[in-house]
């Protein structure tokens, strides 16, 4: 029983990061129809930026804020320079553009920062907490709480603010949205900035646990993509469900079955789920336009 609890807590910590990644995918997909394979680079930039700002002597909250704002700016620039000019391009072209962006950002980070692995101390110390025979790092609570807060704040944003509703309207029907006077270009920029910031938040929170380096983005992007697709692309709740499910499943497989094949189980699950439910667990049904 203590083991199960231990595995679940590991899985929820990792799953919370996947959920934030998947949320980033979802926001950009809703705004632009693009699956952004550079999403993992935002997490890397958040972590690396914070690590270097702390090393330069800044207090942790300021360092984190700077890293998040800087990453958001990168997200806005990515939209302006690479995604917006390719509007209407087929899915394969968009995949290549965002993978190109990921390769570019990784190369730039290797130059701008360095090629070493970095980490900074957990925000509430490093002494493990004990809970019914299981142990938990205080930073894990930060990750879970951070993810919960982000999802809650975003829900409020989408349902209670005019700007948030404009984002949803644009996601549903860009043409209609622009007809009722919504500045869809600004909404695109906002979505990319927001998505990048969410990625950076995940990076800031998780670096004390997982560490970071200039080349960690691609693996993160793949996990986040898998989580987003599992939950159903375009649905924030699906992102949450997909992320947590994937994280817990990996931990349980590593604990009870085989640590070598723990990543395999998530991909087998994705193929099975998609074969039965082609829109993912919580995805919306779409009809083909003829």
């Amino acid at each position: 029983m203590a083991d199960l609890l231990q595995f679940l807590m590991s899985g929820l910590t990792v799953g919370a990061v996947y959920a934030l990644l998947a949320l980033g995918f979802t926001i950009i997909f809703n705004a632009s129809g693009v699956v952004n394979f550079a999403q993992g680079e935002f997490v890397m930039l958040g972590g690396m930026g914070t690590a270097f700002a702390i090393a330069a002597g800044l207090p942790v909250p300021l360092a984190a804020l700077l890293a998040i704002l800087g990453t958001a700016a990168v997200g806005v620039a990515l939209n302006r320079l690479a995604i917006a000019p390719a509007r209407g391009a087929p899915v394969v072209s968009l995949i290549i553009i965002t993978i190109g962006a990921a390769i570019f950002l990784q190369g730039a980070a290797g130059l701008l920062f360095d090629k070493q692995i970095h980490r900074y101390p957990g925000f509430s110390g490093e002494a493990p907490l004990r809970l019914a025979g299981a142990t938990l790092l205080p930073q894990s609570l930060w990750v879970m709480a951070g993810a919960a807060l982000t999802f809650a704040a975003l829900w409020l944003f989408f349902t209670r603010t005019l700007t948030g509703k404009a984002v949803l309207a644009t996601a549903n029907n860009p043409l209609a949205a622009s007809l009722v006077g919504i500045n869809t270009k600004a909404i695109m920029a906002l979505s990319f900035g927001l998505s990048a910031a969410i990625g950076a938040v995940a990076g800031v929170l998780v670096t004390p646990i997982t560490m970071t380096a200039y080349n960690t983005g691609v693996a993160l992007a793949l996990s986040g993509f898998a989580a987003a697709m599992l939950g159903g692309l375009g649905n924030p709740l699906g992102a949450l469900a997909g992320g947590l499910l994937l994280g817990v499943l990996e931990a349980l497989t590593a604990g009870y079955v085989s640590s070598q094949y723990k990543d395999a189980v998530s991909f087998i699950l994705i193929i099975l789920v998609l074969a039965l439910m082609p829109q993912g667990l919580l995805g919306r049904k779409t009809t083909d336009r003829v």
Partner: peptide, 16 residues
């Protein structure tokens, strides 16, 4: 036990 290069957490393996 084993872990993949990008893994964030090896607690389950170490628990075993």
């Amino acid at each position: 036990e084993s872990y993949a290069p990008g893994d964030a957490d090896m607690v389950p393996q170490l628990t075993n």
